[in-house]
Amino acid sequence: MTVRLPGAGGSVRAYEPRTEPFAVPPGAPLASRAVLSAAHVVADPYADVSPDAPAAVDWDATLAFRRHLWSHGLGVAEAMDTAQRGMGLDWAGAAELIRRSAAEARAVGGRIACGVGTDQLAGGSIAEVRAAYEEQLALVEGVGAQAVLMASRALAAAAAGPEDYLEVYGHLLRQAAEPVVLHWLGPMFDPALEGYWGSSDLDAATETFLEVVAAHPDKVDGVKISLLDAGREVALRRRLPRGVRCYTGDDFHYPELIEGDERGFSHALLGIFDPLGPLAAQAVRVLDTGDAKGFRELLDPTVELSHHLFRAPTRFYKTGVVLLAWLAGHQEHFAMVGGLQSARSLPHLARAYELADGLGLFPDPALAEARMKNLLSVYGVAQ
């Protein structure tokens, strides 16, 4: 059997899917690295909602996907940008997601960390930003989850300079009940975060970021760096206080950053580990045995897919992630909150299918083939 896929310049080419998946059985938690997958949400395709209405979520399918990740020993990073925070999922929806996922984590014994932001605000003063963060921090800690202090669009707009970041983050860290993860999300993921930490000069921003960590090392479990700059992450990682982890958020260079070097390594909190979950878990289990070569042999071939999904404009990577979840059988439709299934072109989606199929990511390749053919037919590509 072949699939006719759209190619360059309006052409159509034949692709022969693989017949056997890369099968990975569920396994125990990982040992040598802390690895969390930032998980997507599943929309309710039957909800009659308008584009500007609150998101309608299929809670059963959404929670089932988290159980899938936990079953492979991965942690779940909940209500992060992969879950479309600020791109279809509002704070009310995120709060419900946090409550439900935290309860599910307790039931199955899975690790969960949840995003704390300020997306109940459209704008506001520094005091209002601080209060919005406090509201979300209280909810996350109240359900027993670890907090990830996410970058705030409202703070980026309200801050006059580095001192405002130092004040807001210092205030939050002093009141945090347990150590948190600080998240530096670059503007390639969200253009509204340009100049975060008080400067568009990344060297200056790094100094402010590290000043926050150094002032409260007992309240910082780790930092998540999402700048797609491996050299900068390594340099920052080497300057962290003892005991503070670096969680890579670099969806382009994750194999080398997780493997590390003679001076340390990065843990992981990655959106690409949503579609790669079982394969990524297997790679880290190989690394747990000390086999760095085997780890890279498993994970390096996935980088081409990640580069494709996260290509500019990077913030629309969620579309490819949800496509692959549908093709893999984790949900019954290719619909997204906010209608973001339309955010990528058909050739982009076709290439994502081809790369994922080549890696063996689909548990049932025949199902993935049939679903891809159905999608292509909607666009007029006869099979």
Rank of each mutant, 00 (worst) to 15 (best):
G88W: 10
Y46L: 10
T62R: 13
L89E: 02
D58E: 13
A53C: 02
P45A: 02
M80T: 13
P54Y: 02
A103T: 11
V76D: 04
H68K: 13
A47M: 01
P45S: 00
A113E: 01
V76T: 01
G110L: 10
H68I: 12
G109D: 01
I98W: 00
S50F: 12
L74R: 02
A102C: 07
Q84W: 10
S101H: 00
A47E: 02
A94S: 15
T82L: 14
R106W: 07
L97F: 12
A61P: 08
R111P: 06
L89T: 12
A95I: 08
T62W: 11
W91A: 13
R67H: 15
E96M: 01
A107N: 07
E104H: 09
D90L: 03
A55R: 09
D58F: 10
A83L: 04
E78D: 14
A47C: 04
A92T: 13
R111F: 11
L63K: 09
A64N: 13
W59V: 11
A53F: 02
F65H: 15
L74T: 02
A55V: 08
A55Q: 10
D90E: 13
L69H: 14
D52W: 07
D48P: 00
I98K: 03
E78S: 03
H72K: 02
A105P: 07
D81V: 14
L89C: 14
G93C: 06
R99E: 15
D52Q: 05
E78M: 00
A53G: 03
A94V: 05
A103Q: 13
E96L: 11
M87K: 12
D48Q: 15
L97P: 08
A77E: 05
R111T: 11
G75D: 04
G73Q: 12
A102E: 02
E104W: 04
A95V: 08
G88F: 00
G110W: 09
G86I: 06
I112R: 02
A47K: 07
A79T: 03
H72I: 05
M87P: 01
R99D: 14
W59E: 13
D52G: 01
W59S: 05
T82W: 06
G110P: 11
A77R: 04
G73L: 04
A107M: 11
A83N: 09
A77P: 05
W70I: 12
V108I: 06
V108Q: 09
A94W: 02
G93Y: 11
A113M: 07
A105M: 05
L89G: 04
A55T: 06
W91S: 07
S101R: 05
A55Y: 10
A79P: 04
G93T: 08
A102H: 03
A64L: 13
G73N: 03
V49H: 03
D52H: 05
L74V: 02
E96F: 04
A55K: 08
F65A: 15
R85Q: 14
V49A: 13
G86D: 10
R100M: 10
W70G: 05
L63T: 06
A94F: 08
A92F: 12
P45F: 04
G109H: 07
S50M: 09
D58S: 12
G109R: 08
P51K: 00
A79K: 03
P54D: 03
